[in-house]
Design a protein around this nucleic acid. Sequence first.
DNA 1: AGGATTACTGACCGTTCGGTCAGTCATGCA
DNA 2: TGCATGACTGACCGAACGGTCAGTAATCCT
Lengths: 195, 195
Amino acid sequence: MTAPVRRGRPGHSLDSLLDVAVAVFIERGYEATSMDTLAERLGVTKSAIYHHVRSKVELLELALDRALDGLFAVLPAADERPAIDRLEAVVRGSVGVLVAELPFVTLLLRVRGNSPVEAHALARRREFDRVVTDLVRDCVAEGSVRPDVDPALTSRLLFGTVNSLTEWYRPGGGLGAQALADGLVTTLFAGLRAP
Amino acid sequence: MTAPVRRGRPGHSLDSLLDVAVAVFIERGYEATSMDTLAERLGVTKSAIYHHVRSKVELLELALDRALDGLFAVLPAADERPAIDRLEAVVRGSVGVLVAELPFVTLLLRVRGNSPVEAHALARRREFDRVVTDLVRDCVAEGSVRPDVDPALTSRLLFGTVNSLTEWYRPGGGLGAQALADGLVTTLFAGLRAP
DNA sequence: AGGATTACTGACCGTTCGGTCAGTCATGCA
DNA sequence: TGCATGACTGACCGAACGGTCAGTAATCCT
């Protein structure tokens, strides 16, 4: 880790600003958060924020891109491994990203498509979901996942559960990312695998 | 069903207003929805809304109470049945309420506690979660649920999955409430039960 | 016909919102 | 010492917000 050689008057960087902004967006909701509220939490005036960023929605865009980039990095290239192994890897990887980038992913999962920025994020989420659903379908085809429950339902329940982690998981609460992923995979994949 | 004997000038009732309001709140978010937008969707002016309701937040309160009343009605009295059967009944009942009152429950699950009304709804949700967590603990105690995964984690995964239904389930899409509950219980309880 | 009932309009108000701009302030480097 | 660099201030703007109020419109009941 090289020390970030900062010149000029000390203050917030774009990164530190983004961390605080995302925290407040989650706490109060993006729309319900005013730039003045944000400024107060940062200990600066509203104008200072516009020194780092062009608009309120650009803050949101930076946050959503960070979450999405993390999630897409988890998708495996189609290789020779059984689909069920690749599926488990995606689930474990997603849990990892979710824990590592918790605030950003949390924000992503709350986006409703109001602005073009939000609509674009929703589109990328749908793309991610599609890849996972295809993977579950591959599992059923190779016989590793029970066929008596609809694959589309299975994949939605699967990632519905993973995504619901943002509603309650807090790091440093005694439950590590590894134990979390283990518990989740144990519970879910037992009911998933073909008898 | 008795015909609702309406007198006076025809127009929206509180119920029909609430249905539209909740739909728009879900679509755009509560905070992002202005009373003027709402009025436009209803085909009336903003003032007309205030004939039925005292404030914007009262619309939210009516919607949240409806969802919460439905959920609490599902909790069983402590009886002689095994805890695992009561747990399954709660899960199936919750899925039923979620399907029957989908927009209202969806809205409830997105509340963040900004206003006193939202804070009160959050408190009632926590109360519901507490009862369910206790029920899962009873299951572990009676030996019907595997003890190697933490009960708190189990109950959170369980209701995380149920609640995630609001993110994608749409009635009339070929998947009925019964089939939905069956698929969910099959998938989840298989991984839950003690070996 | 006429009153009771219910739903609604249109103009308006004070406040808050996201955003702008010209200028100031504190630091590292030469 | 002084200058480039980067962070920040304070006053301000037009638009949109939630909400108010006095009056009007359409229906049912007697």
